[in-house]
Computed example of a mutant assay.
Amino acid sequence: MIYKKLFKPLFDRVLALILLLLFSPVLLLCAWLIKKHLGSPVLFRQERPGKGGEIFKIFKFRTMSDARDAEGNLLSDEERLAGIGKRIRSLSLDELPQLLNVLRGEMSFVGPRPLLVEYLPLYSQEEARRHDVLPGITGWAQVNGRNAISWEEKFALDLYYVEHQSFWLDMKILYLTAQKVFKREGISSTTSATMEKFKGHA
């Protein structure tokens, strides 16, 4: 399909470059605020599986502190996600550095979110099909609940996207993403500041 093989990769890279230039003042402000309130590093880098399960390093703004208890153990996500970090995440500004991943061809604007490498052996054969396309900054699961839905629902939505990927679906997802960001919906799960870990189907 011409859209998937030619137009979408070109659209992704051109738009990523434009947005990096357009949002450069916001990127610099976020970096300064994180450096001031949370210290270094400003960027959070983590290995994630991309298309075909190929590993790449995703970029995000750091939003959690390194606060620890008396025994030296990191506090919970809820306790470490506060202040400027919580504000940046609530506005989804922590995702902006992923424009670099899009520019490098490791991600797309729209696709299943890249999850943790440790989940790879836990997927069923059907769930692993989420890696048939490039991972995205946003996706069908993100505009239908984001972190507030179950893993089963999330994977079902990811697979729907893999099977129905098109220009019009991508435009719909981008439009709905803008609405979600504005309303700040689905940032957290119902029981955690972030999504609970996937533990497979055992």
Rank of each mutant, 00 (worst) to 15 (best):
L33R: 13
L33N: 08
L33Q: 14
K36Y: 15
K36E: 14
K36P: 13
K36W: 14
H37Q: 15
L38W: 02
L38G: 00
L38F: 08
L38S: 09
P41D: 11
P41E: 13
P41S: 03
V42P: 13
V42H: 11
R45F: 13
R45M: 15
R45H: 11
R48L: 03
R48I: 05
P49I: 07
G50D: 00
G50E: 01
K51N: 08
K51S: 01
G52V: 06
E54Y: 09
E54S: 06
F56V: 02
K57I: 12
I58D: 04
F59A: 12
F59L: 14
F59I: 07
K60T: 02
K60P: 10
F61A: 07
F61I: 05
R62M: 10
R62Q: 14
T63V: 13
M64G: 07
M64C: 09
M64Y: 12
D66W: 10
D66N: 15
D66L: 13
R68I: 11
D69A: 01
D69T: 06
E71P: 06
G72Y: 12
G72I: 13
L74G: 05
L75P: 09
L75Y: 13
L75F: 08
D77T: 10
D77H: 14
D77L: 11
E78Q: 13
E79G: 06
A82R: 15
I84R: 03
I84T: 10
I84L: 03
G85T: 04
G85W: 03
R87D: 14
R89W: 00
R89Y: 01
R89L: 05
S92A: 08
S92D: 13
L93W: 08
D94E: 09
E95P: 10
L96W: 11
P97G: 07
P97N: 06
Q98F: 12
L99I: 00
L99S: 05
L100P: 12
L100W: 15
L100N: 01
L100D: 02
V102K: 05
L103K: 02
G105F: 11
G105I: 04
M107C: 10
V110D: 08
G111A: 05
G111N: 01
P112Q: 00
P112E: 01
P112F: 00
P112R: 00
R113G: 11
R113T: 00
P114V: 00
P114R: 02
V117Y: 07
Y119S: 04
Y119H: 12
Y119W: 01
Y119T: 10
L120E: 14
P121Y: 04
P121Q: 01
Y123V: 04
Y123M: 04
S124D: 08
Q125W: 09
Q125P: 11
A128G: 12
R130H: 08
H131I: 00
V133M: 04
V133L: 05
P135Q: 04
P135I: 03
T138L: 11
G139H: 10
A141V: 10
A141P: 10
R146V: 04
R146C: 09
N147E: 07
I149L: 12
S150F: 07
S150H: 00
S150Y: 06
W151V: 05
W151D: 11
W151M: 09
W151Q: 09
E152D: 15
